[in-house]
């Protein structure tokens, strides 16, 4: 029922594909364009200059890519296990609803607005303009996401299985390594990827807490846009969007197997 069939279905499908794929086609194409100005519909020439500069280390994009990857990996690798354990505390505690509302707290702020309120604290702690400061700031959102994400995992069924381990004489370590970790392996992977994305795409907090000293790929895109260098901006954008997109293509279930908070 309501399903568009025939030509209508094909047109609707084509429009959705065009809508979703356009940035992923235009950005790499623009990064390869030698010259592409109005009114040309396609680049006059294709040139790998921007990519060769990147690969040859002639522009800072490579260095920034490495730094962005490092920050996102640290955020994802730390927030996933902490969120996993913290969610257990929230799920099984009497104040579950109260704690869960607290877990949503960072989402009551726009990252930039939060950054303006937090900067004084980071300055006081000498964390502004440092890699540690940026990682801590980004972890606020990633950790909150991880807790909200894992709370439904800690349910009656999982609790019953854990109790069964103890009834059969198992230890806490065995319950954790033989039951809970295997049960949650896929969810841990999903959460790791989502936390990585939260950090990978973060702009506002990084801008403020990084204080211009910690450059990441999203910041670099804006820098090149402000310099009116669309080809390098497209290169930085391509590096920003292609790895996660390829990952999603091969692991669709890692993105939308369950409900998750937006933003």
């Amino acid at each position: 029922m309501f399903e568009a069939r025939g030509v209508r279905g094909a047109l609707l499908g084509a429009s959705l594909v065009a809508f979703c794929a356009a940035p992923f086609v235009l950005m790499p194409l623009l990064s390869l364009a030698g010259d592409w100005s109005f009114p040309d519909l396609a680049p006059g020439t294709l040139s790998p200059r921007a990519w060769l500069d990147f690969l040859g280390g002639n522009n800072p994009v490579g260095r920034v890519l490495l730094r962005s990857s490092l920050i996102s990996l640290v955020v994802a690798a730390s927030c996933t296990p902490i969120g996993f354990l913290a969610a257990r505390f929230v799920a099984y505690d009497r104040g579950r609803k109260r704690w869960l509302l607290l877990a949503y707290a960072p989402y009551a702020f726009s990252p930039v607005i939060l950054g303006t309120c937090l900067l004084f604290l980071y300055l006081r702690l000498n964390l502004a303009g440092t890699l540690t400061g940026v990682i801590l700031a980004q972890s606020m959102f990633a950790l909150a996401f991880a807790i909200v994400f894992f709370v439904p995992f800690w349910n009656r069924r999982v609790l019953a299985m854990e109790e069964l381990v103890y009834t059969l004489g198992g230890t806490r370590l065995q319950a954790f390594t033989r039951v809970l970790l295997p049960l949650s392996r896929e969810l841990l992977l999903i959460c790791f990827f989502q936390c990585f994305l939260i950090s990978w795409t973060q702009y506002g907090l990084t801008l403020l807490i990084g204080a211009g000293k910690v450059q990441t790929l999203p910041l670099m895109v804006f820098e090149y846009v402000n310099e009116a260098n669309p080809y390098y901006a497209a290169l930085a954008s391509s590096l920003l969007i292609l790895p996660p997109a390829l990952f999603i293509v091969f692991n669709r279930r890692l993105v939308f197997t369950r409900e998750r908070p937006a933003g």
């Binding site: 990978w200 795409t201 702009y203 920003l240 997109a245």
Partner: peptide
């Protein structure tokens, strides 16, 4: 393809 934009940062969406 419908999953692609889930990995799209606002920065790139704006530039696009």
């Amino acid at each position: 393809v419908v999953y692609f934009p889930l990995a799209l940062p606002a920065t790139v969406a704006a530039f696009f």
